[in-house]
């Protein structure tokens, strides 16, 4: 900008400084420090001895690490596709001509702003074996109680159900924004051409909302990879470690068994996996666009 007494360089630095200081202290430095810790046999108070890559090597022979990683991937697979479908369906409903659309939008979105520990306790209660609502209803109609959270076969799906209820509204918001961006003219001309609702849905809405879907997919996979609170509250990782996810193992290794170096190494592996997924997704996204 051609202004007298231009101090852009100085001003840019001064305006950036407050954030850069906290960013360095609470993001950049710990990120590097964590990598450093991961090369040590470090307990809670004192750095132990340097073990180079031993923590990483040990990970690959640790069965608990593999099972936690698998449970995390399982959770991603259980939640991601269904959350996208529910979110998209909700968006269709609330952007359509329904007389209920305002109410629906609020009701669908509301759970998302509640904390996951509230959601977790609520759903643990709904799914409680003896007195929970779900089993009461099932028994009322003559069925047998289901061990929602205590049967190893169902536990992860049960946590998934609570998660659908919690975050579908988030995807709805993104999809609604995407649908609203499609120009009215496209719809009008398809109407003139005599296309029905479902034809328009499959031929116009779905193809045009694809960029939003990709964004939702990326955000959802990352969010699901970071799952922790719901599992911690609803099952505590049980039954028999059946729902222990990676974040929980990182937490337990660090703050229950105080193997800080090992925990840090595991966190870096998780970081690497998430980074890899994001890079692949953005690459695919870029290819799509060009």
């Amino acid at each position: 900008m051609a202004i007298p007494g231009n101090h852009d360089k100085r001003d840019g630095i001064i305006f950036s400084l407050p954030f850069l200081i906290v960013y360095f202290m609470f993001m950049v430095f710990p990120l590097l420090f964590g990598l450093y810790i991961s090369f040590f046999n470090w307990d809670i108070l004192s750095p132990g001895k340097f073990v180079a890559l031993d923590n990483y090597k040990r990970l690959f022979t640790d069965e608990m690490f593999y099972s936690s990683l698998w449970h995390t991937i399982e959770f991603v697979l259980i939640t991601t596709p269904i959350l996208l479908i529910i979110g998209f369906s909700m968006a269709l409903l609330v952007t359509g001509d329904s007389p209920l659309s305002k109410i629906s939008e609020n009701v669908f979105f509301l759970p998302y702003i509640l904390s996951m520990t509230v959601i977790g306790t609520l759903w643990a209660w709904l799914m409680q074996r003896d007195y929970g609502l779900f089993n009461q209803v099932i028994r009322h109609f003559g069925g047998d109680s289901i061990g929602w959270l205590i049967n190893p076969k169902y536990a992860m799906w049960s946590v998934g159900l609570a998660t659908y209820w919690w975050t579908a509204g988030f995807n709805m918001i993104l999809f609604s924004a995407g649908i609203k961006q499609i120009s009215k003219e496209v719809y009008e001309s398809s109407k003139i051409d005599g296309a029905g609702y479902f034809q328009t849905l499959f031929k116009i809405t779905i193809p045009l909302v694809k960029p939003t879907a990709v964004l939702c997919l990326i955000l959802q996979i990352i969010a699901s990879f970071n799952v922790f609170g719901q599992v911690y509250v609803m099952t505590g990782g049980g039954p028999h470690g059946r729902t222990r996810v990676l974040t929980q193992y990182i937490y337990e290794a660090g703050f229950r068994y105080f193997k800080m170096g090992y925990s840090a190494a595991m966190a870096y592996v998780l970081f690497f996996i998430i980074l890899l997924i994001s890079v692949i997704q953005y690459a695919l996204l870029g290819k799509e666009r060009s």
């Binding site: 993001m27 990120l31 964590g34 990182i250 925990s263 998780l270």
Partner: peptide, 11 residues
Amino acid sequence: MVPFQVLIIPL
């Protein structure tokens, strides 16, 4: 892009 889990031990 940084998952918070990476920061918990060093922080």
